[in-house]
Write a protein that binds this DNA or RNA. Structure first.
Lengths: 244, 244
DNA sequence: GAGTGGTCTAGACCACTCA
DNA sequence: GAGTGGTCTAGACCACTCA
């Protein structure tokens, strides 16, 4: 392969290779946690040098879609990996301890998408969705109340039992049971006052200031596949962020 | 230069080059906004190949310490650049408009560090600091109240006048007037209720839920040089975050 | 020892900027 | 046209893993 001619759609070779590898990831040619072919093998397959394949793989590894292990190979990233398990979790105790929220399933029901949910998930109004509510404790303390909404079409047959079988680890379950890989989330954060029911479920007085995080989670191709609204009681905990 | 022998302190060549370039950045050999020498020139200076210099520069560009411009050269990053100006600003209107907070200086006074501030900034207890308070409006609406604390030793001669001369753009002023470059910030986010004075300054009733962001800002070598506490009124605005 | 990814080099040519 | 960074190649050798 040589350089394509300069044009609006011009992409360097390594980007074209990156697209090809991404397509294999989307099609499931290699499953989560499995190794992809070696750099030399891919270089042969695509008729480019090892360096070009390296550059493509490096960008995919930077995006956390692949994981490199020197001496072993390159692997498809998985939410089941230890290092990814709390990757999207940003809540932590003020004490600085290294503890994570423990989930408790409240309910999981099938319902219809309200207009806002439908718009955010690119669904037709009234499309079927699942609504999952969970509650989390950190070190025994009630900290987090969450409602997740996902399209029923992508998660056929979801049930409380299925969720509990996966220990309430949703992204890992999406991946292994439904072939849906969450690769990016975007969040909007606000401060709100606890309502009556929210207060009851979090065991705080109504009116308590709570952190409200509205998340949209995306799979390949910037496709939104989950929205979740989470309320955090931040008396002894905080949401942490780092900007470089 | 050849590979160093494997050892606990082993660093590949390109990382050693990266350290050398970072040292030049810290020493001010090239100022913010100025070009650094070309890759070939640096390769000659350090006696390595252009590829090795490239790899070092690429990592520094990924960290936003350098900015590459094809055909022109590589430049020292600066907070004065348009693209960096709102880099650490995460508040945005719910409407999705592309508007940014406009600052208003409330006061700037010299005082002594309280124990918490002293600990976070690695100062001796009671060390001199400046406390700067600002207020921000977005599209005319009052949204943000902020208190910044910085060590007096690093910012000798700071005054309200100096701040206003820089249009209240603090990181840009730190850089150009005091040679202090902010390269990373870490934040802890909570929901709190507005106090009396806070409510008055933000023109909301006491008790209104506010987003409180506690930030520590760092310069080279993970050295903390600023802490700031910001309160956001999030009725019509939100803090946005993206995790990949 | 064979196979993997990681580093480093030298050299070619492309894309972009500026005078 | 000279100089910059960007892409691509081929090849050497290192570091790590596993049998």
């Amino acid at each position: 392969m040589k350089h394509a001619l300069a044009s609006p759609a011009f992409q360097p070779l390594y980007r074209q290779i990156k697209s090809l590898i991404t397509q294999s990831l989307m099609s499931g040619e290699w499953g989560p946690g499995e190794p992809i072919p070696s750099e030399l093998e891919l270089a042969g397959r695509f008729n480019v040098s090892q360096g070009t394949v390296r550059k493509a793989i490096n960008e995919l590894a930077d995006q956390n879609l692949l994981v490199r292990h020197q001496g072993k190979g390159t692997f498809v990233a998985s939410h089941a990996e230890e290092r990814r398990k709390y990757y999207f979790t940003r809540i932590a105790p003020d004490s600085g301890e290294d503890v994570y929220p423990a989930p408790e399933l409240l309910d999981c029901c099938r319902t219809k998408a309200d207009p806002v949910t439908a718009r955010l998930l690119n669904l037709s109004p009234g499309a079927g969705i699942f609504a999952v509510r969970r509650r989390f404790r950190i070190g025994g303390q009630l900290v987090e109340l969450e409602e997740v909404r996902i399209p029923a079409s992508l998660f056929r047959g979801l049930s409380s039992t299925a969720i509990e079988q996966h220990e309430c680890k949703l992204y890992s379950m999406y991946e292994s049971e439904f072939g849906v890989r969450i690769i990016e989330v975007r969040e909007r954060i606000k401060a709100v006052a606890a309502g009556e029911e929210e207060g009851r479920l979090l065991e705080v007085p109504a009116g308590t200031p709570l952190l409200r995080v509205d998340r949209v989670a995306f799979t390949f191709g910037d496709k939104p596949v989950e929205i979740r609204a989470t309320l955090f009681h931040t008396a002894n905990h905080h949401y942490q962020n780092r900007i470089t």
